[in-house]
Design a protein around this nucleic acid. Structure first.
Length: 427
RNA sequence: GGAGAGGUGGCAGAGUGGCCGAAUGCGGCAGCUUGCUAAGCUGUUGUCGGGAAACAUUCCUGACCGAGGGUUCGAAUCCCUCCCUCUCCGCCA
């Protein structure tokens, strides 16, 4: 959500934001609607003021004078009753449109159409040079007996999977390591709902627009989150926080659910694009300070890349271009981890900076230190690790000629072994 | 799931149709008193929206007593729906 006053005063910037983000919004029509809504609202308020004043006077009138006053009041009331639905309709229309206005991208966001125009910022680690043909994680996992796609599909349809034995253990080990990695950086671990009210899907910017991607429990108007960002960011919605308590740095470890509608034929093989996965997510709610929020964004990116360093996985960081940014995002860095079976880097992390976009929708504010009016917070989020996607990178990058897989050193203790070997096979 | 009770300002708590944006107390803020602290005294103290101006600020105005609808000239107060909390019973990881 944008500040409507700001929109009114800077229509050209909003148009430019929409153009850069490739979002179709008619800003002029929006402003015209806003003007009409304000006009109707003012008229309705004037009528209501008159009605109210009249009612007060009427209460004190002697009985014989009441009839005439009553008739006048009824006339006024009829007018209000006629106008109010118009105001309500205009207001609803205005809100629906304003929920779709794009947040302007930061100046350093490169212009571009889609993810092909993202700009690589850095590349860390060397993709492994394998002296043998690389196997995919599916091949490796099934041979090791730790991944079972067919039965996952039997249980829950396409894009589902089972992790068995060391596969499930490996997943838990990565997630647990991610938790301690982040707790050491001062983040508070939270257990949060994953089935949430519509308001928070809207507040974090997933709705309207993302309805097709979310699983809905329609009887209750509740939705399964695609990321714990939704819950973590909404924790203090509607509240006014104390400046002393900012920034709030939290992580969540939750299952994430995505319908992946409209992705037919895309990444159909394996564990890359699935309906249910685990994710450790970092969310920060901070003060309305642009400079601070830029720095925090980079710090959060660092927490994620440090973790990949720890796992010894090769990756690169890209500056996401304007056309690939979400409606509310001001700036986004994606981290892509090397995946031999893709012959390239696959997105494993996404670090977003929202300015006050989410906070406005969530009514998430804080009282500044110097007193004064409550201000909208700035919010940010980033992945720490998501599984099974990270397992693709681990299995494929650490594979050996005989189909066994070395366990990344920091996970060895949890698994109780250094190498995952096929049952009865070499290893 | 069943039965009952309840949701009012930062908190406690009055208010059952007009003079209620809301008593009173506590807390907060300012001032006075005081050697310091405490106590005491006096004053003050919600949020959001719209409009106007000398746009820091002031003025006018609307909305808000869990949420949404309704009755009424007028609703915190009456009616309906929903949400939440508490107590008891049932069920349950």
């Amino acid at each position: 959500m944008l500040d409507l006053k700001w929109v009114r005063e800077h229509p050209e910037e909003v148009k430019r934001a929409a153009a850069r983000k490739r979002i179709a919004v008619d800003v002029d029509a929006f402003l015209e609607l806003e003007r009409r809504q304000r006009e109707a609202l003012t008229r309705a308020e004037e009528l209501r003021a008159a009605l109210r004043a009249g009612a007060e006077r009427l209460g004190q009138l002697p009985a014989e004078l009441r009839a005439e006053a009553l008739a006048r009041q009824q006339q006024l009331k009829a007018e209000v009753k006629e106008l109010e639905p118009q105001v309500a309709a205009l207001t609803a229309e205005l809100r629906a449109l304003s929920l779709r206005l794009p947040m302007p991208p930061a100046p350093e966001v490169p212009d571009g159409r889609d993810d092909r125009d993202n700009v690589e910022l850095k590349r860390v680690g060397e993709p492994p040079r394998l002296a043998f043909p690389a196997r995919s994680h599916v091949e490796l996992g099934e041979k090791l007996g730790i991944v079972d796609i067919a039965r996952g599909v039997k249980l829950a349809g396409s894009r589902n999977y089972l992790l068995l034995g060391d596969g499930a253990l490996l997943e838990q080990a990565v997630l647990q390591l991610a938790l301690s990695h982040m707790r050491a950086r001062g983040f508070e671990l939270c257990s949060v709902p994953t089935l949430v009210n519509r308001a928070w899907m809207e507040g974090t910017g997933y709705f309207p627009g993302g309805e097709e991607q979310a699983y809905a429990c329609e009887r209750d108007d509740q939705y399964l989150v695609g990321t714990s960002e939704v819950s973590l960011t909404s924790i203090h919605a509607g509240e006014v926080l104390d400046a002393r308590d900012l920034p709030v740095r939290r992580i969540g470890l939750t299952p994430c659910y995505r319908r992946e509608a409209g992705t037919y034929g895309k990444d159909t093989k394996g564990l890359y694009r699935v309906h249910q996965f685990w994710k450790v997510e970092q969310v920060v709610v901070g003060p309305a300070d642009e400079a601070w929020s830029r720095e925090e964004h980079l710090r959060m990116l660092g927490h994620a890349t440090d973790f990949l360093d720890l796992l010894e996985l090769p990756y690169r960081v890209v500056n996401v271009c304007s056309g690939d940014l979400g409606q509310g995002q001001v700036q986004k860095f994606d981290v892509e981890t090397w995946m031999p079976s893709r012959g390239g880097y696959g997105e494993t992390h996404s670090a977003s900076r929202f300015h006050d976009f989410q906070a406005r929708r969530l009514e998430l504010r804080y009282k500044p230190r110097d007193g004064g009016k409550p201000r909208y917070c700035h919010t940010l989020n980033n992945t720490v690790i998501a599984s099974p996607r990270v397992l693709i990178a681990i299995l494929e990058n650490f594979q050996q000629a005989d189909g066994s897989v070395r366990v990344p050193p920091p996970l060895r203790a949890a698994l109780g072994k250094d190498v995952l070997a096929p049952p009865g096979g070499a290893g």
